[in-house]
Structures are given as C-alpha cells and as structure tokens.
Amino acid sequence: MVLTVIERNGDGTPTAESAEVLAAARDLAEQLGVPVAAVAVGDAGDLPDDLAKRGVAQLHLLQHALLADGSPSCTGEALSQLVAAQRPAAVLAPGTDRSTEAMAWAAAELGVPLATACTEIRPGIRPGEPWEVTRERSGGILLEDAVLDAPIRLATVRPGAPVPSETAAAHEVTVHVLVPDLDASVPRARLVDRRPRAAGMTLTTAPVVVAGGRGVGGADGDAVLEELAGLVGGAVGCSRVATNNGWRPHADQVGLTGTRISPDLYVACGISGATQHWVGCMNARSILAVNTDPEAPMVTRATWAVIGDVHEVLPAVIAELRRRSGR
C-alpha cells in the first residue's frame, strides 16, 4: 500500500496540502498496483466519506491523548508504529513544517531515509529496486534527482502539486484505530499557549507586494513603499539586506529564509534578484522591477521593468496614481 499522511483542518476535513498528497499517492499506487491508505490523528468524523471519493481504501486513525498537541515527536513515534505494523511500500506526507518534522522523527525511529520536498517520485521497475525522486533544494533554487534506497520509502511532497479535478471511483473505506504505545520515558515538549494571529493583510495573502532592497537605501526610504502599497491595496516586503540592516522587521523578508509569496503582482524596488530572494517571489503572477541596473537579474526575469532610481520612479508613480484616482 501507499500510506498517505492526512493533516486536518479545524473541522476535521483534509487540508489542501493533504488533498495534493492524496493525488500524488493515488498516482503512485496505480503505478505500483497497490491500494491507497490514509492515516490521520483523532476521530473519524466525515473523513471516511471524504476519503472514499479520493480513492482511499483504508483509513488508520491514531488516537492518544499526547497526540492532541500535534507534537511531531509523538506523531512521528505513532506513525512509525503504524508503518512498522503495515509495512507500506511508501509513506507520503504533505511538505508542511509539521508533517516534515513528524516524518523526520518517524524516519529516525524506523532507521530509513526520508526524501523531503519532492516534486516527483519514480518507483523502481522491479520490486526491491531503488526508487528515484526529484526534490527541491534550497526552497527550489535547484532541483535534485536522488536515489531513495530503502524497503519503505518515506517522502514529503512539496506543497503546490496539481490536484486532478475528477475523483477516483468511490471505494468502501475500512477504518482502523491504532492507540500507539508512546514511550513514557521520552521527555517531550508540551504546547502551553496558542495565540491566534491578529487579523489583517499579510505578505502571503496580499494581492500586491511592494518590496524594497538595498537600493531603497534605509528605513526613511520605506515611506514611499508604504504609500504605494497603501494606494494599490498591498503589503510591504523587503530583501534580507533591508532586514539585516534593521530597516524592516524579519517578518517582511521575502525569500528562502523569509516568506514565500505568490501575489498577483510583485513590485521589486532596488532588489537585485539573488537566488535566495528569487525563490521567495518567483511564484508571483507578474513582477515589476524598478532598478537602476538594466542587467540586474530581477530586471531580466521580470514581466515589466522601469530602469531608474526608486527615489524618482516611485514618487512619480504615486503622483500619477493619485491624479488618476482623484485622491
């Protein structure tokens, strides 16, 4: 079987990332000629009906008081027990932080390798033959083809994989409950507080992100970024140079070690387009670069560019915007 790790929304339904992984699992299971199974934490709720439409034949529910926190060490240990008992050909999980952490713990318990952030999984032709995966390195700066050589193949799937729209022929889903035997002698971290995020637009939800880099030249230069973002209903982002110089908080940083965004429009002001920044904005639907250097990688990869000094271009754009919208 191909075992799929399901993360659940607050209402118990599979998350969007889990739906993507189920699609990948179904594809893999078809190639191998084996059934798709799923594993989730908690009660069944509507999950069996939902999973039936996604081609799942078996649902394993992990139930234990310690699993309520979502602690990766507990989930990982429970998962390793299920895997040891079921011996699936592969275990696929969403490439979210939480599932990756649980899979890493499970892989360590089981003594098997784990391929993270996979975009493709190619099973060996004959049983026992090593598999190949393609995974993203450094958040997608490069792709890596790798051999995954183990009796049970553990992989996480990079979020954003396409989900086929048509559902598989509905199956009867059998439900199995596993109460894992979590090692009481292992000291664990406990969740002691959870505070919801303040409402409002964030870098990841904004339709437009106006970002500044070294070319903006300091915290004072940022006023024009704020003003432009306000006029077009967007959020402000920045490069690591801006963060490291203390011009903006790290929460605004776009890139490999900042936030990955996919707005309709990314306005990159005085940002060169280093690979580590580029992976954070490359999924934008369109990019407008404002840069003095026509050869800057951000300019040559952008949809549109203005060659010039941000301190001249942005005020002019703001003035024109105000003129046209009468504000």
Partner: peptide
C-alpha cells in the same frame, strides 16, 4: 521583460499596467 521606460517618465506606463491589473481604485 517589457521595459516600461526610464526614470520618472515611466510613471504613466506603470499606472497603465496597474490599471490593467485592476489595482487602481
């Protein structure tokens, strides 16, 4: 890449793009 222009003179072309994207309110 479509170069919209140089310096402040590019502002109208930039706002045209923003308008096409439905971002001028």
């Amino acid at each position: 890449t479509v170069v919209l222009g140089r310096g402040a003179a590019a502002a109208p072309a930039v706002v045209d793009v923003l308008a096409d994207l439905g971002m001028v309110r």
